[in-house]
Simulated scan of single mutants.
Amino acid sequence: MTSVTSPLAGRAIGLAAVPDPVFSDAMVGPGTAIDPVREPSEAVSPIDGIVVSLHPHAFVVLDSEGHGVLTHLGIDTVQLNGTGFDLLVAKGDTVTRGQAVVRWNPADVEAAGKSPVCPVVALDASADALADVVLDGEVKAGDALFGWR
Rank of each mutant, 00 (worst) to 15 (best):
M1R: 08
M1Q: 09
S6W: 00
P7R: 01
L8F: 04
A9R: 08
G10K: 02
R11W: 12
R11Q: 15
A12T: 07
I13V: 15
I13A: 10
L15M: 15
L15W: 09
A16E: 13
A17I: 11
P19S: 15
P19A: 15
D20T: 11
P21E: 10
V22E: 09
S24D: 12
D25Q: 15
D25P: 03
D25V: 07
V28K: 00
V28Y: 00
G31Y: 05
G31F: 04
I34D: 01
D35F: 11
D35T: 08
V37N: 06
R38A: 14
E39M: 15
E39C: 14
P40H: 10
P40Y: 11
P40R: 13
S41V: 06
A43I: 04
S45F: 03
D48C: 05
I50T: 14
V51Q: 01
V52F: 08
H55A: 14
P56N: 07
P56M: 06
H57A: 07
H57I: 03
A58Y: 02
V61S: 02
D63C: 05
S64V: 10
E65I: 05
H67K: 11
L70H: 07
L70F: 07
T71I: 07
H72K: 05
L73Y: 04
L73T: 01
G74D: 02
G74L: 02
G74Y: 02
D76F: 06
D76Y: 08
D76N: 15
T77L: 02
T77K: 01
Q79L: 14
L80K: 03
L80Q: 05
L80H: 04
N81Q: 14
D86G: 07
L87C: 13
L88T: 00
V89N: 04
K91N: 13
D93Y: 03
D93L: 05
T94F: 10
T94V: 12
G98D: 02
Q99S: 13
V102S: 00
V102A: 06
W104D: 04
W104T: 02
W104I: 05
N105H: 14
A107H: 08
A107I: 07
A107L: 14
D108N: 14
K114P: 01
S115P: 05
S115C: 10
S115I: 08
P116S: 15
P116C: 13
P116L: 13
C118S: 15
P119I: 06
P119N: 07
V120G: 00
V120F: 02
V121R: 01
V121Y: 03
V121E: 05
A122D: 04
L123S: 09
D124H: 11
S126N: 13
A127C: 07
A127L: 08
L130A: 06
L130G: 00
A131G: 08
V133G: 03
D136I: 10
G137C: 10
E138R: 13
E138D: 14
V139M: 07
K140V: 05
A141W: 00
A141I: 00
L145V: 01
L145D: 00
F146D: 02
W148S: 06
